[in-house]
Design a protein around this nucleic acid. Structure first.
Lengths: 355, 355
DNA sequence: CTGAAAGCGCTTACAG
DNA sequence: CTGAAAGCGCTTACAG
């Protein structure tokens, strides 16, 4: 029997998924043109492009990413470094990163950084994995030693949610100062006069931005800054417990407590309940981050939402572009982008109690 | 100037990472032999293998995974389906899956399943992504319609942490009945007589296994099963709040509360505090899962730890093996594996109060 | 605007 | 036990 078309030499499976060649044949063009259409190049006539698109649809064609990587000489590898124990942050972040990496045929390497590990040891691991660029979610985004080592290796990197963007790294952030300002402003608008603030970990750069936003809102409203209403926390539930105890033991306790994250706000809510206080009728408690605990506890927390997935996606895009630029020997322009936050009003904030 | 070695025709970058050809040249063998060593085949002389290994080390050679996938005709794509809002579970699971997928050059596709979406619509999305196999963490692992649709498509799948493993799917679980038994046994050993149980969502198959473990421990200890001490929950914090209120309002309240997950245990702890009860001196409260909330709340929860990352890794391995077997036309043998859990003793359990 | 040829780095199928 | 040849499915570099 004679095989239809040109004789296949020998070898390999035949019943595979459709290829560029199949699409090209059906569309009556060359594989080259199909490739052009797939890669959204401009230099293709509209009629040709339409024919190819129709063939792609008819065959339900999907490009083979391995072949694209090989031929294109790309095969980018992006490392996501994490030391943050906040699992909810990490999972949101991972989902965003995976989406973008998948769309761009980049490979994702997830590496955990122990606090005890030196930046050099970490960098050696990145070398072993042939990493091309690095994603730095908090708190790693603020680690000077790590940033320095990565810079020395010439690796493109992006700081996510940092309060101090450096000039040799990309950055994707929200405006923490403005977000904290907006939340404080909201509390002022609800009539609160004694508004307390629980700070975050002072080692993380966003902490001081959030405090600054709180201060500015008070200042602009013509309020005095009562030093006893600002209590130090470190982002843990336990520190929130202690901070709230301190605040509620005050001779003139606050009618509203703004915690720098949801864990501490949840702790403050627990303390308020323990003191027999109704939230939000007797005391308003608000958080920051909109992590799962914000909707887990009761009443659900009013908080600030960061677009974590979007930040991850955007950061990944910046890195892919940076890798590409580096390969082409183009100058690396550094991008600092600020995305929008959202004030999420739920059940834990109320008007100032009239007593 | 004449280039050293054979003349390069034209084209493409030169200063790339080392390839099999480089390794072969240095080791004085053919690329084929290098490939054999990399793929751990047997039919290579020890001396040859050693030479190749040394060359690999000397050049710091790492195989190009895109080329391997292309030439090998593999390029497995594994979908991780999730509808579970528990972010901490998902992130742990993702980390385990990514590790294994990375090691095996498999691609991971993460897809969220809305509750409103039909199983057919979902399957269509999997087709579009050219998915070869599916990872099903809870609660999706127990969705009969979904399982049926995937089976109809002949897709290998693995149920993670299911209480009802089906015969056409792989499964990786822990023994929930035995884990709940162990926890209850621990409470009995600490002298508790009135031990309450808050159940999980009755739609998830593990819920009844956990209840059964609690019951068996009581039965084997010769205790009567007080029906008022078993209260229904649905795994949410809010349901834990209600369940704990019910339990603590009992004429004869329990001295220990075993909640079917940590969220509900944390809620029970909050309710106990609201009632002015000290945990664990006046009431013991224990959870299940060892999610981040277990170490967030105070006192930290005694709980059962599932090896989520290991389960994810093992599930991914089973899938990769299944895809390979399917390609080779080999019969698909289904594996049901049970990994070890761990009873994690922390601060929320104590001896029965002497009153 | 379009195409024929060569090549990306590896593995499969044979042959010795 | 080892190797020369062909091919995986795509894109790059040219040429028209």
């Amino acid at each position: 029997m004679v095989e239809a078309g040109q004789t296949r030499k020998r070898k390999r499976r035949t019943q595979s998924a459709p290829t560029v060649a199949d699409v090209a044949r059906l569309a009556g063009v060359s594989p080259m043109t199909v490739s052009r259409v797939i890669n959204r190049e401009t230099a293709v006539m509209d009629a040709t492009r339409d024919k190819v698109r129709e063939a792609i649809r008819a065959l339900d064609y999907v490009p083979n990413s391995a072949a694209r990587s090989l031929a294109g000489g790309r095969q980018s590898r992006i490392a996501l470094l994490h030391s943050n124990p906040s699992a909810s942050y990490l999972s949101e972040f991972l989902v965003g990163t995976l989406q973008e990496a998948g769309a761009s045929d980049a490979q994702l390497v997830v590496e955990h950084c122990a606090a005890t590990e030196s930046a050099e040891a970490l960098a050696a691991r990145l070398d072993a994995h042939r990493v091309d660029a690095v994603l730095l979610p908090p708190p790693l985004c603020d680690d000077p030693a790590l940033l320095a080592v990565l810079q020395a290796r010439g690796l493109p990197m992006v700081q996510i949610a940092t309060g101090r963007a450096v000039d040799f790294a990309h950055a994707v952030t929200i405006d923490d100062e403005r977000a904290a300002y907006a939340m404080t402003r909201h509390l002022i608008d609800r009539g609160h006069e004694r508004i307390a603030f629980i700070t975050g970990d002072t080692n993380q750069t966003v902490s001081s931005l959030r405090l600054e936003g709180y201060r500015r809102a008070l200042r602009e409203a013509g309020r005095a800054l009562a030093p006893d209403l600002v209590v130090e926390g470190d982002f843990t539930y336990r520190s929130g417990l202690a901070a709230a105890e301190t605040l509620l033991a005050l001779a003139l306790p606050p009618t509203a407590i703004f915690a720098s994250n949801d864990d501490m706000a949840a702790a403050a809510s627990a303390v308020a309940h323990r003191h027999g206080l109704d939230v939000p009728r007797q005391v308003t408690i608000v958080g920051y981050d909109d992590t799962p605990i914000a909707t887990t506890v009761w009443p659900e927390l009013t908080t600030i939402r960061q677009p974590i997935q979007d930040m991850a996606r955007r950061g990944t895009q910046l890195l892919i572009a940076a890798i590409e630029a580096k390969r082409l020997g183009r100058a690396a322009s550094v991008h600092h982008e600020c995305l929008d936050f959202e004030l999420v009003l739920r059940e834990s904030d109320g008007d100032r109690p009239h007593d």
